[in-house]
Structure formats: C-alpha cells, structure tokens
Design a protein around this nucleic acid. Structure first.
Lengths: 223, 223
DNA sequence: GCAAAAGTGTTATGCGTACACCCATGG
DNA sequence: CCATGGGTGTACGCATAACACTTTTGC
C-alpha cells in the first residue's frame, strides 16, 4: 500500500443534506461559510471522516457538532468525486440525506453557529461546492422514496393527524392528492394505524391521531 | 486541512462488480487473490483512486487493467466504510456495478490474470472483504432497475432476438414471464423496436432481431 | 416429417381514479 | 351560528394477467 502524501490520494469527507417540511415547503438546513472563495455562501454541513469512524458515524457526528441536530434518519445518498469539486484540495465526499420532523427543528437553530438556517429547497441561492447538485439529488431521492417506502415516518412526530401526513406528501411531490384515495391507500398498505388519541386545543373538529406501524424502513407498492 | 498520515484518515478505493448473464444465470467477474489472509479467495476487482481521477474514471481503469474489460456500462452503487472491512488498512470503498453482454466476455478471460473467472451469483463461495454483501447489493439493484429502466440494454448486443431479452429478465428476476404480455409491454413502452434483420444459421425458425431505441438510460413504468 | 423455437389476440378481473356531502369543535 | 378542517363510499374505465395454437426453419 502506498504511503499517503498530500494530494497524492484523495481525502474523504461526508456532507449531510438535512430536510424538513415546514411552512408548506421542503427546507434544507444549511450553514453560511466564512472561507474564501465561498465566503457568505451557503453549504450543507460536512467534514472529514476520521480513521476510526464509519461514514455513517461521521455523518451523525458532523450533523450534531455543526448544527446540534441528533438522532435523525440518515441514509447514504451518493459519493461525489469530481476532481475539482473542492477548491481547498482533492476531496471525495459521501453525500447523506437526513430527515427530521419540523417540530424538532428548534434544536437546530440553537446551535453554536449563527450562520445556520433552514432554506426552502425550491428557491435556493447558488451554493458552495457541488451542493446544489447534491441537494437536488437528495430531493429527487426523497420524492421517489415517498412512493415506495414509509420514509415519511422520519418527517413526522410519533403521533400525528392524518392530514399532516398527506401534507408532507403534497409538499414534497408538489401536487395535491385526493384525500379519500390517499387515506384508503395508506391504510390498505398497512403503513399507518389509528391511535385512540385526538388533537387538542384546535379551533376546529379535533383530528384522530395516527402512528406508523413499523419502526424500520419498509418497501411497499404505492405511487 | 490536516496533513495526511498513514491511518490518520481513511484511504479511498473503488471495487467493481461486473455482471453478465450466461448459461441461464447471472454471473459476476471475480479475481482470485494471493495475499494473506485472503489467499485463494475470490474478490471483485478493485484498487485505490488516484489524485487526478474521478471515482468513475478509477472504476473504468481498474476494470480495464485487471480484467481487460472496457467500454462497459458502469454505475455507482454504494460506498462501503466499515472500519475493519479491509485487513490491510483503513480503506473506504466506492462500489460500482458494471454490465456487459455475454458475447463480449471472451475479452475478459483473456486478460493478464489467470485467476479471473465468471462465477454464478446464486452460488458464490465466501468472498474477500465485504464483497459478498457488495455483490448482493449490486444484484438487488440490477433486479430493481430492470423493472423501471432500459438497463437491460447493457446486457445485450446491439441487435438481438426478442427471446434473448426476455431470457435476461427471467434469469435476473428468477421467474418465468409470459411471452405475449412481455412482448406487448416492451413495445408499448417504446423501449425496443424491430429491425429488418433475422437470426442466421439456427436450427429452427429464425427470429427477427430487435434493438433498443434509446442509447442512454431511460426511466419508465413497467414491473 | 420431426424437433425446436417464433410469433400472435382476446377476455376477465381487480385496481386506480374521480368525485361531494355531512360532522365536530372553538370562538 | 359560523368558520374551519375532519371524516367517509361508490362507480366507472383502464390496465394487468391469464391463456394455446399455428408457423417457420434445419436436419
């Protein structure tokens, strides 16, 4: 095995695209950069992988350290390796997609960085590195996975009104869905079930709360 | 950016799982290893990424140098980073899936390594590294993509009898398909079209040859 | 003429889609 | 009593799945 020299072989990093659905739109958690040539540009949180951690571990650590967000759904997305993707050196980056329910997102903006913010994915400014492409890929993947998995679980609290679930789908797919058909489908697939609880303190008829029946990621036929 | 030291940060490699359909089964091209602790065990061809090449470039180079196979369909699969996956050091590997038509495979076994062979994927021995898992993931991905893309193009020559196409599907999906329905579907989706040519020198009624209508990877609704 | 694979349509059933009205609650 | 969202069933049309016999060639 060859000895490592600076730039002789690439370094390996992770970048994490964290999504939530908020204010009727899909948002990504981004950090404002300080270093030239990306000063004042936004980027997904990222960092080098250490010698004693897996890429999954690194993604969780970096997300926690840079944004305060922890215990979220994380999945590997794609590995980006264009030779000039990073102006600071030859770095290959494993992109991750992460998801949080929007009612946890207070934690995120309380972090140690003030340049951390949720930006709506459909009108992002130019981003640092290849992060525009990375976020687009993550959004495509999320959209696709809504159609054949129970991944929406990661965007909702444990118990939720059914309409919130539908709203998540509508925001990410960018189209409205028929209420009755969507309800029928979700139940027929066995993805969610009623609880005995109801919404409280709402100025309209309280909705029954639902929960996802499975904890782990499930593959099913919907769309 | 930190200075690189041996093991302080992981190294980055690629491994290529090359598939073909041959003798009624999906086969993978594997190399017999010499180094302890994997002596005489089989592994997918792999190697380090150089400082001036992308992971895609590295995958193509390694496949060419180690097996003689070139100009094949290549797609990134998943990045494997368990801390102890490689007994020779801390190496993170970007797994690739590659596909060739079985009538090109003479090239492969003519390479510089005599320990190169096509092994049937459904009865592999124990493999080096995490390559058992890598091949299983690649096979799952291939199977899934048959259902929503024209990826089978990469497993066939430019012109082919329709039954060969169906045979590819049947070998990879592991089930038989109805001839008339399959034919109807493929044409309705516009994936393939008839040519004016026919099979030659066969001891039965010569089949009309078909071709894929699109060069690039297409996404469609089948299953 | 025999073996081997090519080629070709119709029918039934189930699934997806479209669609509208009444209900419960808080203010 | 009014506003707001919650909750629920049916009918139609299309797409999928099941299914068998005739044709062409080489030997």
């Amino acid at each position: 095995m060859p000895t490592l020299k600076k730039y002789a072989y690439p370094m390996i990093a992770v970048d994490v695209v964290l999504f939530t659905v908020k204010d009727d739109h899909l948002h990504a958690l981004l950090i404002k950069m300080k270093k030239h040539p990306y000063e004042n540009m936004w980027a997904a949180p990222g960092g080098m992988i250490k010698g004693d951690e897996t890429p999954d571990d690194a993604a969780a650590r970096i997300l926690r350290d840079k944004t305060g967000v922890h215990d979220v759904y994380l999945e590997q997305l794609y590995t980006f390796g264009e030779v000039n993707r990073d102006p600071f050196g030859r770095v290959i980056s494993i992109g991750y997609m992460a998801l949080v329910p929007s009612d946890h997102l207070e934690l995120a903006t309380n972090g140690e960085y003030d340049g951390v913010a949720w930006l709506p994915v459909n009108k992002l400014p130019a981003l640092a590195y290849d992060h525009t492409q990375m976020i687009a890929l993550a959004a495509d993947r999320l959209q696709a996975k809504l159609g054949y998995t129970n991944i929406a679980k990661a965007l909702l609290p444990a118990k939720f009104p059914f309409s919130h679930l539908q709203h998540i789908y509508e925001c990410i797919l960018g189209k409205t869905l028929d209420k009755r058909n969507f309800h029928k489908r979700m139940l027929a697939l066995g993805l969610v079930a009623k609880t005995r609880e109801f919404e409280k303190n709402v100025p309209y008829r309280p909705a029954q709360l639902y929960r996802f029946k499975h904890t782990e990621l499930m593959y099913v036929d919907m769309l």
